[in-house]
Design a protein around this nucleic acid. Structure first.
Lengths: 134, 134
DNA sequence: TGAAAGTTAACGAAAAGTGTTTAAGTCCCG
DNA sequence: CGGGACTTAAACACTTTTCGTTAACTTTCA
């Protein structure tokens, strides 16, 4: 039984950072270079990103594939597509038009350029109407 | 830019498992021993555990542990419990009864079945009265 | 009880992650 | 411009994780 993803070193740096210390100050405290503090902090953030992604995967496990939004689709057409597909399988989506777009932007910002979807987006849905974008 | 914590192999096994296949059946499909499938599945679960713990740490970075809502609690009793605990440490929760329940449902929908909490939920609170559910 | 499902332990090889250093780089502000 | 804060890349020693095998063990249940 081990701890979380973060090493002692990484948690140490994050805690000091939260207190508002600069990388140089932290470097002095823990006796290393500021470059090292930077890489430690960076890998901590990377680990946090991976932890989030891991749980997202877990959610998609009990979600079913709903549809795929093709690259090039206008962002404002996405909700209609999703509502339509969800209706076909008798699931009520738990988001309205606006919050659906926000949720998509939030979780796949790199796939949304201006008003257009610039990557294929796979849409998953749970029985409860929760959405995930792959 | 890598993916989550889980390896391809681990996700593969979890997906088949979700479909209800036995370890032996999966072993046949991916051409290995059932013992190996067992260890892959086990380490996948371990990784998921660590991912959760990592995010818990993130919350505790600027929040303190308030209390734990035990599985089985009626959803409508949750606010009273939280308000009570927060009062003990002189923090005013920034949500009213209704929005607190909504917030919980939003962030831990899979832990709320109908009117009942079906998993233990760890509650964190910041000095500002913001809540997190672990 | 017997068979199928699942778990565990010990071990090895390959792969991935971590902390470090050094040296060069960007970015922003006064 | 100069300096402080931060980022990046390459290389290194080191540790941990992963996938795999074999063989024995426990659990479940018809």
């Amino acid at each position: 039984m081990k701890d979380g993803l973060l090493t002692e070193r990484q948690m140490e740096v994050l805690r000091y950072r939260k207190q508002g210390l600069t990388q140089q100050q932290i470097a002095d405290i823990i006796s290393t270079s500021k470059a090292n503090v930077c890489t430690i902090e960076k890998s901590a953030m990377e680990n946090i990103r991976r932890a989030k992604e891991t749980l997202e995967f877990l959610y998609t496990l009990d979600a079913t594939h709903l549809c795929t939004i093709p690259s090039g689709t206008d962002l404002f057409n996405v909700p209609a597509i999703i509502f339509g597909e969800a209706e076909k399988i008798n699931i009520k989506v738990k988001y309205d038009t606006i919050s659906l777009i926000n949720r998509l932007r939030e979780s796949r910002s790199e796939a949304c350029k201006a008003r257009v979807v610039c990557e294929d987006i796979i849409v998953y849905i749970t029985d409860q109407g929760e959405l995930y974008f792959g």
